[in-house]
């Protein structure tokens, strides 16, 4: 099982990608997609990426929902700023956040979440000290941002990946 499918999630994703691109569920395309998924999994294993285990599907779903609502909410907040309806004394700046998350996949997902949310940008991360620096468009209080990132995103990601 592990020899044949070293990365089952990646292989399933590749098969789904193939079927979506071809827009069909015919047996022939499922065979071809399965071949692509198998070979893709082997090739990825040759790269020697770090292994990880994904746990707690309930936490994953809750994290997805909260990320989507946050993206939606901050879209409207940033749109209000760009249209000039916001606080005229708005200041932007960097915030430094100490992270306890060390799993590389968890950090990658956190980077995707932070950068995809309008209003926050991932600037740099120091893996030795675990210090993350993000840029915030509407910086009111640094402590609020640190609490938000740590409670809303870092805690569920640690549950899932560590």
């Amino acid at each position: 099982m592990t020899r044949l499918l070293p990365f089952p999630l990646l292989s399933a994703g590749l098969l789904a990608l193939w079927l979506l691109l071809n827009q069909t569920l015919s047996p022939g395309q499922i065979c071809l997609g399965g071949l692509v998924a198998l070979v893709g999994g082997w090739l990825f294993a040759r790269l020697g990426p770090p292994q990880t285990k994904v746990r707690r599907p309930g936490v994953i779903i809750r994290l997805c929902v909260s990320v989507m609502t946050d993206i939606l909410r901050s879209n409207f907040a940033v749109a209000r700023i760009l249209l000039g309806r916001g606080n005229p004394q708005r200041s932007s700046g960097f915030v430094e956040i100490p992270l306890a998350l060390r799993d590389p996949y968890g950090l990658a997902v956190l980077a995707c979440i932070i950068t995809s949310t309008p209003g926050t940008l991932w600037a740099s991360f120091n893996p030795a000290t675990g210090k993350l620096i993000i840029h915030v468009l509407d910086l009111i209080e640094e402590r609020v941002w640190i609490e938000t990132i740590k409670n809303r995103y870092e805690w569920p990601l640690r549950e899932i990946f560590e």
């Binding site: 939606l72 879209n75 940033v78 995809s116 949310t117 309008p118 940008l121 840029h135």
Partner: peptide, 13 residues
């Protein structure tokens, strides 16, 4: 750094 935030709007929503 502020301008880099702006296109995210079109990219996501």
């Amino acid at each position: 750094y502020e301008r880099a935030h702006a296109p995210t709007l079109g990219n996501t929503f």
